[in-house]
């Protein structure tokens, strides 16, 4: 009796494990792990670059200093 149970147990386990053997039936996915392309890394701003940015900010602040702090009324319509 015990012998039968053991044989059946082994047989079932074998069938169960064998059932996992055809994992390639579905066409393989072609998603590589990394889809991204390596783009040039950013560089550190040089002193000259920082000065250019400073001038840009300065000009912007001066040009918009007189702007009303209130939001301009929306001209959007919902036609």
């Amino acid at each position: 009796m015990k012998k039968f149970i053991s044989i059946y147990f082994i047989a079932i386990m074998t069938i169960l494990c064998a059932g996992c053997g055809s994992e390639d039936e579905v066409p393989p996915r072609m998603d590589p792990i990394d889809n991204d392309y390596q783009l040039p890394l950013p560089t550190t701003l040089t002193a000259e670059d920082r000065e250019a940015i400073r001038q840009l900010q300065l000009e912007y602040e001066e040009a918009t200093a007189d702007a009303a702090s209130e939001e301009a009324p929306s001209t959007e319509n919902d036609v």
Partner: peptide, 24 residues
């Protein structure tokens, strides 16, 4: 510029890459 870094739009970047899946 952002956070002390300089990001340059280079000439080749005006054309996007063909996705890697299609390349494979």
């Amino acid at each position: 510029a952002k956070d002390g870094q300089k990001y340059t739009t280079m000439q080749f970047m005006y054309t996007a890459p063909i996705p890697r899946n299609d390349m494979l």
